[in-house]
């Protein structure tokens, strides 16, 4: 509990900043919705002017884009990008913090096992992510119901927003696994930004080549397609399973790596 509390406290500030930025991003975009909805036909026509591969790349589905959920899906793609960076950054930094800040000689000689250190840090990171998502969800729900003229499915809205957590967890696990292979990791941000944008671009390129379902496994950003969630009111379970496997593997690697790791002086 001691360690969990300590770690959580040190994550407070960054979680707050991420939450506020994501809320601001989604709310600003949603604020435009009433204006767009009054001229839905014009908006659709504008979008249909784009070549189809570009629309696929941006994740725009012409049939649903004029509905609140469809419109929200467009901005939500960027929210998940933020969430992925947050998760990855958290993952890369949290276990490597002791060697980066040279506090390993403090924490790792305490009467606690390495695995309980990983557990405490992992729990703190998950708590920070869940808290971010809860506050984000509460805020966007308020904004969405304020701007929605015709009403929308609350369940689908929840299903879409829940995928933010899944993406965050996948990148958290990836970050953790990557971090244990470095003796001392200094450039956390470049690793997390590089990885996340790498997968994002890969996902966008894959999407422009629609129909290749197997290729979608290559980018976690393509596991949860908002437009399909709107259509099916549910997830695609094979991709969900892939996500769960990544999280499980990433966490297993981090425990194994951290327990075996040599902590060098200065």
């Amino acid at each position: 509990m001691n360690m969990y509390g300590h770690e959580l406290k040190s994550l407070r500030k960054s979680a707050l900043i991420w939450t506020c930025s994501m809320i601001a991003l989604a709310s600003l975009f949603l604020a435009v919705y009433p204006g767009m909805a009054s001229d839905a036909a014009g908006f659709k026509q504008l979008l249909s002017g784009y070549p189809e591969p570009v629309r696929e790349m941006l994740g725009i589905d012409l049939d649903t884009v004029a509905s609140l959920l469809g419109f929200y899906s467009m901005v939500f793609a960027f929210v998940t990008l933020c969430g992925a960076i947050q998760g990855m950054n958290l993952g890369v930094s949290i276990l490597s913090k002791e060697s980066r800040e040279r506090t390993a000689d403090f924490l790792l000689v305490k009467p606690v096992s390495r695995s309980s250190i990983v557990t405490a840090k992992l729990a703190a990171a998950c708590t920070a992510l869940v808290a971010t998502d809860l506050v984000f969800f509460a805020a966007v729900s308020v904004v969405a119901s304020a701007v929605a003229a015709g009403g929308y499915s609350g369940k689908t809205f929840l299903l879409i927003n829940l995928t933010l957590l899944f993406i965050q967890l996948i990148f958290l696990a990836l970050g953790l696994a990557v971090s244990v292979f470095f003796a001392r990791l200094k450039n956390v941000l470049s690793i997390s930004l590089g990885t996340v944008f790498g997968f994002y671009v890969l996902g966008a390129l894959l999407a422009s080549d629609a129909g290749d379902e197997a290729a979608r496994y290559l980018s976690p950003f393509k596991y949860f397609d908002s437009f399909r969630i709107i259509r099916d009111a549910g997830y695609e379970w094979s991709y969900m399973l892939a996500g769960i496997l990544i999280v499980a593997a990433g966490i297993a690697v981090s425990y194994g790596g951290y327990i075996r790791k040599d902590i060098h002086a200065g």
Binding site: D105, F106, P111, R114
Partner: peptide, 18 residues
């Protein structure tokens, strides 16, 4: 690891959470 309950350690260079 629990045996370290009885251990006090002072490293050569001290760094703490700033």
């Amino acid at each position: 690891p629990d045996i370290r309950r009885e251990l006090g350690y002072l490293p050569s260079e001290v760094f703490y959470y700033d």
